[in-house]
Simulated assay, not measured.
Amino acid sequence: MKNIVILISGSGSNMAAIVRAAEQGRWADRLNARVAAVLSNRSDAQGLVFAQENGIATAVLNHKSFASREDFDAALIAEIDRHAPALLVLAGFMRILTPGFVAHYAGRLLNIHPSLLPAFPGLNTHQRAIDAGCRFAGATVHQVTAELDHGAILAQAVVPVLADDTAETLAERVLTQEHLIYPRAVAECLQSLSL
């Protein structure tokens, strides 16, 4: 069985979309894959409740309990590796990962970013797109590398930027697309692992 481990920091809506897609798409039967664990750096992450209600193992490692980013990442690696992941999926995990962490999962570490990369890496993407006068915005699923939001692009979705958009209204429309493209990209990666 190919295990997927998902890292979250908040509501986990992309994690939930992946869990639902795995169930509806019968990933266990078709892809020999399952979401094995959901981990968070925040004990109040609402996504943990969804994972637990769906019978998925959860764990919390509070990054504030560690002396350094490297110490946190080492503990996180140990917790993740207990689940022998074929894929590690970042779904709103709001921590910048160390190069050693990224290297440990090279080629099997995915993230989704709420912009059409390479445009607007980092934070505040929706407001930045509006301020720049963009006519289109969107989301990108990409491989994670040591350089923030710069890995190989695996999938993208485009939404128009409307004249009356705020960062919040644009974010809502982009998020609906994230929930579609992220599960598809994860499934495609799982299929490629079978080749």
Rank of each mutant, 00 (worst) to 15 (best):
L109P: 02
T140G: 02
N124R: 07
H126W: 04
R82D: 05
L148D: 13
I112Q: 04
A163C: 09
G151Q: 01
F101C: 11
F72C: 11
A78E: 15
L123T: 10
H150C: 12
P121Q: 06
C134N: 06
L97C: 12
A74T: 15
V174S: 01
P118D: 10
R173N: 07
I77L: 10
A155M: 05
R173G: 08
L170W: 00
E79G: 12
G138W: 00
G133F: 03
A78S: 15
G133M: 04
F72H: 10
G122R: 13
D149V: 05
H126S: 02
A84D: 15
I96C: 10
A167C: 10
F93N: 00
D164A: 12
V161S: 00
D164C: 07
G151C: 05
T166Q: 10
H142T: 06
F136A: 10
A78Q: 15
V89C: 14
H113C: 04
T169Q: 10
P121H: 06
H142I: 09
A103R: 13
H104E: 13
G92A: 07
L117T: 02
D81E: 15
D165P: 00
F120I: 01
D165S: 00
D131H: 03
L162Q: 08
L123H: 05
P121I: 08
D165H: 02
V161K: 00
A106C: 06
G107W: 04
H126M: 06
V159E: 01
D164V: 08
